[in-house]
Amino acid sequence: MTTPQHQQATEDTWMFPPADGWTFDQVKHLELPFDWELVDGVIVARGQAMFWHNRVRDRLLAALEGARTEPYEVVAEQCVRIDERNTPKPDVILFDPRQLNFFELECVPPEKLALAVEVVSPGSRQDDRVRKPALYAATKVPCYWRVELDRDRKLAVHEYWLNADTRTYIPAPMHPVHHGKLITELPFPVEIDLDALVGF
Rank of each mutant, 00 (worst) to 15 (best):
E118C: 08
H53C: 02
K132P: 00
P142E: 08
P142F: 02
I43N: 12
H6Y: 12
M174L: 12
R125M: 09
N101A: 09
T166R: 15
H179D: 05
W36Q: 10
R129H: 13
P110R: 01
Q7V: 09
K89F: 01
I170H: 10
T23L: 09
Q8C: 14
Q48L: 14
A9S: 06
A156N: 11
P18A: 07
Y144H: 06
D165V: 07
A9Q: 01
A19R: 14
E118S: 07
P109N: 12
D91T: 01
E191Q: 06
A138L: 06
P176G: 11
W14Y: 13
G199C: 15
L135H: 03
D12K: 12
Q126T: 15
L194A: 09
P122F: 02
E70F: 15
R57T: 10
A164D: 08
A45S: 15
E65Y: 12
C143S: 06
P176S: 12
P4I: 08
Y136F: 14
P88K: 04
M50A: 15
R131T: 12
A63N: 09
L60Q: 03
L155G: 00
K140H: 11
P171S: 11
E185Y: 14
T23Q: 05
A49H: 10
L94Q: 03
V177W: 07
D165Q: 09
L64M: 07
N54A: 07
V130E: 13
G21Y: 04
R55F: 05
I183T: 12
F200W: 09
Q126F: 11
C143R: 01
P122D: 07
A137D: 03
L61Y: 13
H179M: 06
D35H: 13
C107V: 05
G21T: 06
D193Q: 04
E73M: 14
D193S: 06
V120K: 00
E106H: 11
A76Y: 00
E148N: 15
A63G: 09
V108Y: 01
Q7Y: 07
A49S: 13
P33W: 13
V39N: 05
W36T: 04
M50H: 10
R57Q: 09
D25K: 07
T168H: 10
W161P: 00
T87S: 08
P133T: 09
V177N: 06
E191G: 05
M174E: 10
N86D: 11
H29N: 09
V80T: 03
V39Q: 02
A67M: 07
R46T: 07
W36A: 00
P88Q: 06
T139D: 12
V147S: 06
E104Y: 04
N101R: 15
V117F: 00
L115V: 02
Q5I: 14
D12W: 08
I183E: 14
R146S: 02
E148M: 14
P142S: 02
Y160I: 03
P17D: 03
P176I: 09
A156Y: 04
D40I: 01
V74W: 00
W36N: 01
T2H: 15
P133D: 10
K28G: 00
P189W: 07
H6N: 15
R129D: 10
K154S: 09
I93N: 06
S121L: 07
F16T: 11
V74I: 12
